[in-house]
Amino acid sequence: MSIQIVTDSTVQLTESELADLPITIVPLIVRLGTQEFLNDGVQITNAEFLSHLVNDEELPKTSQPSIGQFLEVFDRLGENGDEVLCLNLTHFLSGTVNAARQAADMTDTKVTVVDTLSIDRGLAFQVITAAKLAKNGAPLENIINAIDLHRTHTEIYVYLNTLENLIKGGRISKAAGGIANLLNIKVVAEVVDGELRVAAKGRGKRFIKKQLDELIDHIIEVAPPKVGLTHVDNLTQTSEIANRIKAALPNTLVTIHEAGPVISTYTSVGALAVEFYTD
């Protein structure tokens, strides 16, 4: 009997990680007007979605996977007696983990569902560790202890040109976001205990540059084993940051990712997330 790792499509994994590790991804759903797509990178690509995000008048909508989607995956993975560990994005940003829990109650497969209180590459850190341990035959208790350690040692910062989409999508309050938009203030948000909170705000590009410089100094000081950079049509700035970190920390794995449709919907064009964990 093996432990199969399941997660959702807000996770940010490289092609090699997906090829090498026992990970199954259940896609969220993206809606563009009356059209509905699975957020699986196939039905709609990041580039196609970005065009809609920029040009469509109506903000795209997203929704969690259905209970049926999770149930089909749990049933299939458990056919030969395997059990499932399902790691999902924070409940503060989606009801995905609750759909997974309801499906876990309906399947005959033994399923453990975990709210990672994370998202994107931060979610990936937990998923990768879980999959590596599962592949090597580690017991469930050891895997959960390892991802718990990652969760408490992961930092996620998001640099935003606007809060408009987060407010429209209900991911941050109008009271918190309205002032920032009114004053054209740039925002640094941080994921704290699974919740996206405004950590700092200021005017103009100089503010963002100063905040990024301070964070890069912090990263160099703590020397994390992995740093993930996720952007929405902001490759030039992201690459510059990656090169600075690589030059200072040659033993740190730095990966660059394009944000998928779900994350792009709420962070909007130009956004940049910096995610890392310390041992």
Rank of each mutant, 00 (worst) to 15 (best):
residue 88 N to M: 13
residue 13 L to T: 02
residue 132 K to A: 03
residue 99 A to S: 14
residue 168 K to W: 08
residue 37 F to R: 06
residue 250 P to H: 02
residue 221 E to S: 03
residue 62 T to M: 10
residue 217 D to P: 06
residue 186 K to V: 03
residue 122 G to E: 00
residue 154 T to K: 00
residue 124 A to T: 00
residue 55 N to D: 15
residue 225 P to I: 01
residue 56 D to N: 14
residue 62 T to C: 09
residue 137 G to K: 10
residue 158 V to L: 10
residue 36 E to L: 05
residue 105 D to M: 04
residue 44 I to M: 13
residue 148 D to G: 11
residue 273 A to Y: 12
residue 99 A to L: 04
residue 220 I to T: 06
residue 204 G to R: 14
residue 58 E to P: 06
residue 261 P to K: 10
residue 230 T to Q: 05
residue 255 T to Q: 13
residue 122 G to K: 02
residue 81 G to V: 05
residue 214 E to V: 13
residue 90 T to G: 03
residue 181 N to P: 06
residue 74 F to K: 11
residue 123 L to M: 07
residue 139 P to A: 10
residue 97 V to S: 06
residue 164 E to T: 15
residue 205 K to F: 04
residue 247 A to K: 14
residue 188 V to C: 08
residue 231 H to L: 08
residue 260 G to Y: 12
residue 17 E to L: 00
residue 248 A to E: 06
residue 242 A to T: 05
residue 72 E to N: 09
residue 276 F to S: 00
residue 270 G to Y: 02
residue 97 V to T: 13
residue 120 D to L: 11
residue 187 V to R: 00
residue 70 F to P: 07
residue 213 D to V: 02
residue 219 I to T: 00
residue 228 G to T: 04
residue 68 G to W: 00
residue 172 I to A: 05
residue 138 A to V: 15
residue 6 V to N: 12
residue 25 I to Q: 03
residue 109 T to F: 12
residue 235 L to D: 13
residue 112 T to W: 03
residue 92 F to E: 09
residue 26 V to T: 13
residue 183 L to D: 04
residue 61 K to L: 07
residue 221 E to C: 04
residue 87 L to T: 12
residue 241 I to K: 14
residue 42 V to N: 11
residue 267 T to G: 00
residue 232 V to S: 00
residue 180 A to V: 02
residue 4 Q to A: 06
residue 156 I to M: 05
residue 104 A to C: 09
residue 79 E to Q: 13
residue 199 A to H: 15
residue 111 V to K: 11
residue 33 G to P: 11
residue 135 K to H: 14
residue 121 R to Y: 06
residue 214 E to D: 14
residue 108 D to P: 05
residue 256 I to P: 07
residue 88 N to W: 10
residue 3 I to K: 06
residue 141 E to W: 07
residue 173 S to E: 11
residue 216 I to C: 04
residue 267 T to R: 03
residue 210 K to V: 07
residue 106 M to H: 06
residue 126 Q to P: 12
residue 263 I to G: 09
residue 269 V to H: 07
residue 32 L to N: 01
residue 153 H to S: 06
residue 208 I to D: 11
residue 167 I to K: 12
residue 20 D to R: 14
residue 40 D to A: 07
residue 159 Y to H: 10
residue 181 N to D: 11
residue 2 S to N: 15
residue 241 I to N: 10
residue 70 F to K: 13
residue 101 R to F: 05
residue 70 F to S: 13
residue 225 P to R: 01
residue 201 K to W: 04
residue 180 A to N: 06
residue 31 R to S: 15
residue 201 K to H: 11
residue 65 P to R: 06
residue 85 L to M: 03
residue 48 E to G: 06
residue 152 T to K: 10
residue 142 N to V: 12
residue 234 N to A: 08
residue 97 V to R: 10
residue 243 N to M: 12
residue 263 I to M: 14
residue 140 L to S: 08
residue 243 N to V: 09
